[in-house]
Design a protein around this nucleic acid. Structure first.
Lengths: 319, 319
DNA sequence: TTGTATGCGTTATCAG
DNA sequence: CTGATAACGCATACAA
C-alpha cells in the first residue's frame, strides 16, 4: 500500500491532478463544491503530499541549515529549547533542519536558507557571500534580519528590580566581548542607574562561573553589604553566588544576585537564581517563521524582532 | 547562474547523464578514464547533487525524524551533544532532521526513518505500528535496535573506583523508574559489591536534585563517614553533594559522590563532580549511522551498540 | 561498459 | 474555472 499521490486523489474525486494541486496551493481559484469534493477524497485516501516532489518542482529543498558558530562545549543548555522552537516553526511547512557546527560545511548540500547563531562582528565578511536568505539569532548592527530577546529591556528590568528591593549599590558583572548583545545589556543597566542618579560600576570577564567566582573572591573587600550583582549571564551569576556564600555573605539579605538567560542553569543552582528569563522556545519559532517568510518572498528584508523577557524572582534577591 | 545538473556535467564531459550518475553511485561500473573525466567536469562546474530530485527518484525523503518522548523542561543538557552527533552522522549522506516532541505529529509529513529517545516500556504498542525503520536511543528489551552507553559497565566502573579509593560503604542513589537503563546501572553496582562480599544499599527517587538533597538531609544520621554515594545521574549527585555540604560533611575526605552522565551538569557543580562520562556525541553518530544503514538495507535488523563510558575523576572523590 | 527511454510526484504554463 | 502537457533532476530498467 504505497502512499496516495495527487493522481490517486484526482481519480477518487473525478477531477484532474491540477485541481487537487490547486486546492492545496491556491484554493481561491477553485469552486467551493470541487474544493470540498477534493478535500474529502484526500481524507479518505489519507493523502500526504510528497515533499521531495514538491521541492523538486519548485526548485526548493525544504531544508534550512542551522549554523552554530559557538564552541559546542560552551553552548548554553537553552539551545535545546531554541531548537525545539525552530523545529515547531518549521514543522508547519514541513521543513527539515540540518545542524551545522562547522562553517566550512555550510556549502555542502543544498538548503533554502540559513539560521545562524553566535555570529560575531567579524563574520559579516563571509555572511555576505551566502546566496540564500539568512536570519540571525542575536542582535547585530549590520542590517541582517534577526530575532533576539530585548537585552536592553531585560537588564533595565533587572536593575530596576534590584533598586526596588532596596539594594544600595548595584554592580554589573558583564561578559568581555565587544558584541551588541553585551552592549545592550550594559546600556539597560547604565541608563537605569543614571536615571536614578547613581554611578555605574561594570566589571567584564569571560563567561565562566569559576572566573566570576574568582573575581568576587579576589575583590571581596570592595563590596559593601547591601549590594546587588546584576550579571549578564546565569553562568556568571552562579559563580558570584558561590563566592559570596564561600565568603560567608548572606543571600539575599546582604547581597543580591540576578542572572540572565533563565533556562536550566537557574534551576540547578542553590539557592535558585533570580534571573531575566528569555522565551527561548518562542525565539526559535520566530526565527523559523521569519526565515520561511523570507524564503517565500524570495529574500525580502524582514527587519528585526525583539521579544520581551521576564524577570523571575527567586531566592537570590530579597522577597 | 543556476546550479549545475547531471546533464550539464554530462555535456562538459562528453558522456551521457547515466555515466555521470554511475560515477556517483556505482563507480565500479565505470572505466577509470571516464570516471576521472567526469570527476573533473563535476569540479569545474562545481556540481552539487540535487537531493530533492534524488529523493524523488528513489522514493525517499532524505529526512529522518527525531522523536523526543521526554518532557522538554526536564531534558538533559547533553541532548545538545547528542543532536550534534546525529547531525554529523546524517551529514555524510545529506540527510536532514525533523525534531518532534509530540508523538501525534509523528505521522505528519514524510520521513525515511525514526530515531526515538525516551521510549518507555509501554511505548512498544505504537512503536510497532510505525512503517519506517526506527532505532532507539536507550536500552530496551523488546528487540528494537538501539544505541546506548554500557550502563552496567559504567556503574561497575564507578563502584570499583569508589572501592579503590577506600570508601567503606557504597550506597547507590537510583532513579525510581522501571526501565532497563536503571536496572543495568543497578546491576553493575550490585554485582561489583557482591564480588567484594558487600551488601548493596539502594535508594530510588525522582531524578531531581532537590529530591536527592532532601533525601540525604532527612536520612543524614544513617550515613557513616567514609561513605561513597554512587548516583544514577548527575542531577541526583548534585543534590547529594549539596546536602552533604550543608550538613557539614567533608567531600571528598569523609564522603564521596559519583555522578552519571558527565555532560555539562558536572561542570557547573561545585566542587566538580566525579562522574561516569558518556560519549554523547559519538552515541549520536552511531544512532544516525545505524538508522541510515537500516534504511539502506530496507529495514534489516541492526542489533545493538553499547559504547564504553569513561570514569572522570574530579573533586568529589578522593584523589 | 555505456547510452536510451521512462517514471518518481508535484507545479507552471498555457489552452480550453 | 478547469484540464492537458511539460518540466524539475535523478535513477532504474533495459538495450546496444
Amino acid at each position: 500500500m504505497a502512499m496516495a499521490t495527487l493522481s490517486d486523489v484526482a481519480k477518487e474525486a473525478n477531477v484532474s491532478k491540477m485541481t487537487v494541486s490547486r486546492v492545496i496551493n491556491h484554493p481561491e481559484q477553485v469552486t467551493e463544491d470541487l474544493r470540498l469534493l477534493v478535500i474529502n477524497a484526500m481524507k479518505t485516501l489519507n493523502y500526504r503530499p510528497n515533499s521531495a516532489a514538491k521541492a523538486l518542482a519548485q526548485n526548493r529543498t525544504n531544508v534550512v541549515k542551522f549554523l552554530i558558530l559557538e564552541d559546542i562545549d560552551t553552548t548554553e543548555p537553552y539551545y535545546m529549547n531554541l531548537l525545539f522552537g525552530i523545529a515547531r516553526g518549521l514543522d508547519k511547512q514541513q521543513y527539515a533542519l540540518q545542524l551545522i557546527s562547522d562553517r566550512d560545511k555550510l556549502n555542502a548540500g543544498n538548503a533554502d536558507g540559513y539560521l545562524i547563531t553566535g555570529a560575531r562582528t567579524k563574520d559579516s565578511e563571509w555572511l555576505d557571500q551566502l546566496e540564500k536568505p539568512l536570519v540571525l539569532y542575536g542582535e547585530n548592527r549590520y542590517g541582517y534580519d534577526f530575532v533576539d530577546t530585548d537585552n536592553k529591556l531585560g537588564e533595565t528590568m533587572a536593575t530596576e528590580y534590584a533598586l526596588a528591593k532596596n539594594y544600595q549599590s548595584i554592580i554589573f558583572i558583564g561578559i568581555d566581548v565587544k558584541e551588541p548583545f553585551e552592549y545592550s545589556r550594559e546600556a539597560g543597566y547604565i541608563n537605569t542607574l543614571q536615571q536614578n542618579g547613581l554611578l555605574p560600576r561594570i566589571h567584564r570577564m569571560a563567561n565562566r562561573s569559576h572566573i566570576s567566582q574568582g573575581f568576587i573572591n579576589d575583590h571581596w573587600a570592595e563590596f559593601a553589604r547591601n549590594t546587588c550583582f546584576v550579571c549578564a549571564s546565569d553562568r556568571l551569576a552562579i559563580g558570584v553566588v558561590r563566592a559570596i556564600l564561600a565568603k560567608g555573605g548572606r543571600i539575599p539579605d546582604d547581597f543580591g544576585v540576578i542572572g540572565h538567560d533563565g533556562v536550566f542553569l537557574d534551576q540547578v543552582s542553590n539557592p535558585q537564581l533570580t534571573t531575566v528569563q528569555q522565551q527561548v522556545m518562542s525565539l526559535g519559532e520566530h526565527l523559523a517563521r521569519m526565515l520561511l517568510s523570507k524564503i517565500d518572498q524570495s529574500g525580502a528584508q524582514q527587519g528585526e524582532v525583539l521579544l520581551t523577557p521576564q524577570l523571575v524572582a527567586r531566592g537570590t534577591t530579597r522577597p
